[in-house]
Amino acid sequence: MKILIIEDNPQNMKLLAFVLKKYGHDVIEAFCGLEGVEKATDSHPELILMDIQLPDIDGLEVTKRIRAKEPVQKIPIMAITSYAMAGDREKVMEAGCNGYFEKPINPLTIMKDIEKVLEMKKP
């Protein structure tokens, strides 16, 4: 699978990329929101893993933008965040994300978790 990771922290990016590649997926890296939106539209990934805290536009905005663009509307987006406030989850889901994970992620189980979420969302 082609997976786009939007994450500004390089170490986190390295971790995620390593794990996903280990599972045999293709990984596209974007280190800020705008890059993320661009790469999403250009490369058309099958899954997007996105950190909410981004330096330019935050993940919610990114989600909205991606969801607004025709061809890439339907790509599942998983939000990863360390935000712990009430209402965060709701905001994220409202923006258009399909799932929500809290940091730190468990690299060993991440894929399974993602699949579970996607499964649940399947019509």
């Binding site: 922290n9 971790l15 940091k103 730190p104 468990n106």
Partner: peptide, 10 residues
């Protein structure tokens, strides 16, 4: 949490 992510993850 952010650094811990790396520690535990890696």
């Amino acid at each position: 949490r952010t650094p811990l992510n790396s520690i535990i993850g890696f």
